[in-house]
Design a protein around this nucleic acid. Structure first.
Ligand SMILES: [Mn+2]
Ligand SMILES: [Mn+2]
Ligand SMILES: [Zn+2]
Ligand SMILES: [Zn+2]
Lengths: 139, 139
DNA sequence: AATATAATGCAACTATGTTGCAAAATATTT
DNA sequence: AAATATTTTGCAACATAGTTGCATTATATT
């Protein structure tokens, strides 16, 4: 497990540090998206707040994770499962936030729809955010 | 103009105050969505920050304005043009943010698509956020 | 005009995020 | 393996966003 994380960092020419290992591993063993606050909490105050912010920034730049716009006013981060590379993300899937358990799911197999815009508008990116109850909470 | 704003407040059983008049009027004469910061700036520091926040909260509750999730990490507010009422919003249109002029448009006539979710998931709300260039900036 | 009700401003607080810089850790070279 | 160069980290300080309690003030009601 740690070896896999290790090689991901190497492959992306990132130096291997405790914080990067811990945070990347956390993403790999989490099902949903994570906020900075959750990461800070789950790494047990091992790392400085600033370090976590900078680690997330680097991971986004390298195409390891992507951000998800949220109504909660805190940036959500989730693993890129597609072939995202340095500076080029290709995450065209939709996201689902459960109102009950608050988990944010990347629905990787549901692609964002093509929506016709008014004349003159040029689309560059589409984000679809669905809310409701996830399979676990909808009983 | 001011009379129209006035009657909107009355209709929603909101007492008429300078801040509510000014902020509601500002929404009615703006084309796009507004952030708290912009409102504060455009009302020329006439009102306390807290008053603006509370005014926006009340307007959302009453169904006069709706929030738009944004990647900018600041809540966007825009007029409800549909028949939204106290506690019940029916804003099922998509939103477009221009990368250049930073305007956020409510595309009221473009409804959010129906997207099939995995088994067990129950959808309650769909937000579509498109980014790119608006008609003015796409020259 | 008097009273009841609701909104405002202020202060203090929490949360989220960024920047500069010296110290420490990692990677590279010898 | 040690020395050097390069990155990363932690700290402090700052910036912006948003909330809460409470006394004062304004609005609505009688
Ligand atoms: Mn995702
Ligand atoms: Mn809208
Ligand atoms: Zn759930
Ligand atoms: Zn524009």
């Amino acid at each position: 497990m740690t070896d896999a994380i290790n090689s991901i960092l190497k492959k992306n020419s990132l130096s291997i540090t405790p914080s990067r290992l811990a945070i990347l591993q956390l993403f790999h063993q989490s099902s949903g998206a994570l906020t900075h606050a959750v990461i800070e909490q789950k790494t047990g105050d091992q790392f400085d707040r600033v370090t976590i912010y900078r680690t997330l920034q680097v991971f986004v730049e390298k195409g390891l994770i992507h951000t998800i716009p949220s109504p909660d006013n805190a940036i959500l981060y989730a693993l890129c499962k597609e072939d995202c590379t340095k500076g080029h993300h290709h995450d065209n899937h939709i996201h689902f936030i459960c109102d009950k358990c608050n988990t944010t799911y990347c629905l990787d197999h549901i692609t964002t729809p093509n929506i016709a815009l008014p004349k003159g508008f040029k689309n560059k990116q589409t984000d679809v955010l669905m809310k409701g109850l996830c399979a676990h909470c909808n009983q």
